Simulated scan of single mutants.
Amino acid sequence: MNIGIDMMGGDYAPQEAVKGVKQYLLKNSFEQLHLVLFGNEEQLKPLLSENEVPQEKYTIQPTSQVIGMNEHPTKALKEKTDSSIAVGFQHLAAGKIDAFISAGNTGAMMVGAMFSIKVVEGVLRPTISSVIPKPDGSTGLLLDVGLNADCKPEHLNQFAVMGSVFCQYIFGVENPKVGLMNVGEEEGKGNILAQAAYPMLKSNKAINFIGNVEGRDVFRNQADVMVCEGFTGNVILKMAESIYDIAQEQQIDNPYLNRFNFEIYGGTPVLGVEKPVIIGHGISHATAFSNMIDVAVKMLNTDVLGKVKEAVQRI
């Protein structure tokens, strides 16, 4: 199992990326795991040595360029072919690594995911999701959270299928409950998209559709998978992130509120592409990098993307 990591992406790279690699390896001892670290070799070597990262567990793939957080994604990938992100996707496409992780330019990661590797046959649009903590200790999944700001009903129908498969195999939830984000519980509520998506989801035998869910249900145990277009999903995601920030500012130490810390979930997997691509937050620290590796390992061990492919093609 070879997992590639963009060591130069993110506000605190490469220091926090190196610390994250060490953190993960201290907690896990998979003999079959090998990490391919993409980045500036002169910067990485002393940091890896200083942090005593076992040399047998990684290989440095030297790169000479970095795609900045504010650069235009497509232009940057074309012009910076020796960047850590571009070279990482080259290796992923060639089968030299099995998964790729980055906390760098989100747009570049999305462009790379959709054009360097194949979109699953039958998938109309790949999607990204976010983990939503529930008061009972469980976790929900919200998608889309920003990749697809405008959607058609068919997109939400596929998001529901992909989210259900991910929730089942990564979170261990049998027969996940799927809800459609809406402004009311009753069938027929909502805008044109919601009204058109409801009957499609209702007739989809591949999911356990429970109907509409409202904003007040997002953090409750109403649904395991909640689907919406990316505009609404991103608003909810950013609101959820602010809950943890406010709790920290107010010095509130609460077990539930602490679970809103994005770092404990690692990053966001792109669902609907052939190989695992994990996108981390730009402000990721060591814990986030460690948990991104963990997400990639779980996705590979469960072959969740293969199961997503099977589920999408069945409908």
Rank of each mutant, 00 (worst) to 15 (best):
Val178Arg: 00
Gly179Pro: 02
Leu180Glu: 04
Leu180Val: 02
Met181Thr: 03
Met181Asp: 04
Met181Arg: 02
Met181Tyr: 14
Asn182Phe: 05
Gly184Thr: 04
Glu186Leu: 03
Glu186Gly: 03
Glu187Pro: 04
Gly188His: 06
Lys189Ser: 07
Gly190Tyr: 04
Gly190Arg: 00
Leu193Phe: 07
Leu193Tyr: 07
Leu193Lys: 05
Ala196Trp: 05
Ala197Ile: 06
Ala197Thr: 15
Tyr198Glu: 06
Lys202Ala: 14
Ser203Tyr: 06
Ala206Asn: 14
Ala206Cys: 06
Ile207Ser: 10
Asn208Ile: 09
Phe209Ala: 12
Phe209Val: 13
Ile210Met: 11
Ile210Phe: 12
Gly211Met: 10
Val213Glu: 06
Val213Gly: 08
Glu214Gly: 10
Glu214Met: 11
Gly215Thr: 12
Arg216Ala: 08
Asp217Cys: 09
Val218Met: 15
Asn221Val: 13
Asn221Met: 09
Asn221His: 12
Gln222Ala: 14
Ala223Leu: 08
Ala223His: 09
Ala223Ser: 11
Ala223Pro: 12
Met226Ile: 15
Met226Asp: 11
Val227Ser: 07
Val227Gly: 09
Val227Cys: 08
Cys228Leu: 10
Glu229Val: 13
Glu229Trp: 08
Glu229Asn: 14
Glu229Ala: 10
Phe231Cys: 07
Phe231Val: 09
Gly233Asp: 12
Gly233His: 12
Leu237Gln: 11
Leu237Met: 13
Met239Pro: 08
Met239Ile: 14
Met239Trp: 13
Met239Thr: 15
Glu241Gly: 11
Ile243Leu: 15
Tyr244Gln: 05
Tyr244Pro: 09
Asp245Val: 12
Ile246Glu: 04
Gln248Asp: 10
Gln248Pro: 06
Gln250Arg: 14
Gln250His: 13
Gln251Trp: 08
Ile252His: 06
Asp253Leu: 10
Pro255Trp: 03
Tyr256Thr: 05
Asn258His: 08
Phe260Val: 10
Phe260Gln: 10
Asn261His: 13
Ile264Ser: 11
Tyr265Ser: 03
Tyr265Ala: 01
Tyr265Asp: 03
Gly267Trp: 02
Pro269Phe: 00
Pro269Trp: 00
Pro269Ser: 01
Pro269His: 00
Val270Ala: 05
Val273Met: 04
Val273Trp: 02
Val273Ile: 15
Val273Gln: 03
Glu274Pro: 09
Glu274Gln: 14
Ile278Asn: 03
Ile279Cys: 02
Ile279Glu: 03
Ile279Ala: 04
Gly280Gln: 06
His281Trp: 03
His281Arg: 05
Gly282Lys: 05
Gly282Phe: 05
Ile283Pro: 05
Ile283Met: 14
Ser284Asp: 04
His285Met: 05
His285Asn: 08
His285Ile: 00
Ala286Ser: 14
Ala286Met: 00
Thr287Ser: 07
Ala288Ser: 07
Ala288Lys: 01
Ala288Cys: 08
Ser290Asp: 01
Asn291Gln: 07
Asn291Arg: 11
Ile293Phe: 00
Ile293Met: 01
Asp294Arg: 03
Asp294Met: 02
Val295Gly: 00
Val295Asn: 02
Val297Thr: 01
